[in-house]
Amino acid sequence: MEGKRSKVRMCCLCNQSRASLNRPKTLQQICRDCFYLSFENEIHQLIIDNHLFTPGDRVAIGASGGKDSTVLAYVLSKLNRVHNYGLNLFLLSVDEGITGYRDDSLETVHRNQVQFGLPLKVVSYKDLYGWTMDEIVKLIGLKNNCTFCGVFRRQALDRGAAFLKADKLVTGHNADDIAETVLLNILRGDIARLSRCSSIITGEDGPIPRCKPFKYTYEKEIVMYAYFKRLDYFSTECIYSPNAYRGFAREFIKDLERIRPRAILDIIKSGENFRISTNTKMPEQGTCERCGYISSQKWCKACVLLDGLNRGLPKLGIGRSRPGIGCKEENESRGVKSIESKQCGSLDF
């Protein structure tokens, strides 16, 4: 290539503006405005086709201040206005009580509240469980802390949503997340989760149904959208998570995306098409005796963990006392790679 840079390409949809990006989903070279439209319309269509909402619904948007939830809040509130969904939207944030990390991301959410004009509710571990993550880590160290956080967070969102009388909870889990989860469940032998994880709505029989409007949205597009629209989001690793690892599974998905971008959607399609044998024993759903949350055991996991903390027996409910199992946590605190990208369990839906 000599002389000037290669010719400017025009958007293949409108042919009027310069193309700004290559959509991984469709391999189209499109301009920014066409991108915004396609991006937003696909999500709108998904919401309509799957009957995610009813007019009048109170919808809590799980907001962490990160890219997915920020873009979700922005797009959802825009679609709500433009297409008259008639929804009452608000932001729901969880404060785990991690100094330096959560403070900053919560600040972002507060800014979003102002920027997008959505009310915000913050639920804290302290209020719900009587412990902050800082306090827990002080007690148990850096091993197994992610276990606590993951379990507590999941319940915190549900409890926060219930407290606010929400009808639905939406989270920003994107196509890459769901593809990773499908793979992880195969790798870990979790057939129960495998059957649920590619559904766009989960927990319909539980306290609050959860939806994932970004189910088919590529992570790359979310970042592009946020970048072009100059949306404000926060992106730092949780300070308690081991340094410098990206799960094997996520790495694999990224390598895959590079060879064949549609593979991410293909994994989700496979997940949707898996038919689980009826012979397989699936756990029964009941409620926790202590707090009433859904559980397949007598006590839900959070109650078990809390009980341990409160009694000064923080190991209670962590793994099993068999050789080899502890190794996983050892590896994590030493920064050795694990198979999943988010140790905090936020991929569990």
């Binding site: 290539m1 840079r5 290669s6 390409r9 310069r18 193309a19 700004s20 990006l21 290559n22 070279q29 992570e219 790359k220 970042v223 592009m224 970048y227 072009f228 990206r246 996520r250 790495e251 990224k254 390598d255 995306e257 590079r258």
Partner: peptide, 16 residues
């Protein structure tokens, strides 16, 4: 993989 690159606000996949 997973790092986006933009040259003058344009996806580098478009420019080679």
């Amino acid at each position: 993989p997973g790092v986006l690159v933009l040259v003058n606000d344009c996806d580098w996949e478009l420019s080679g």
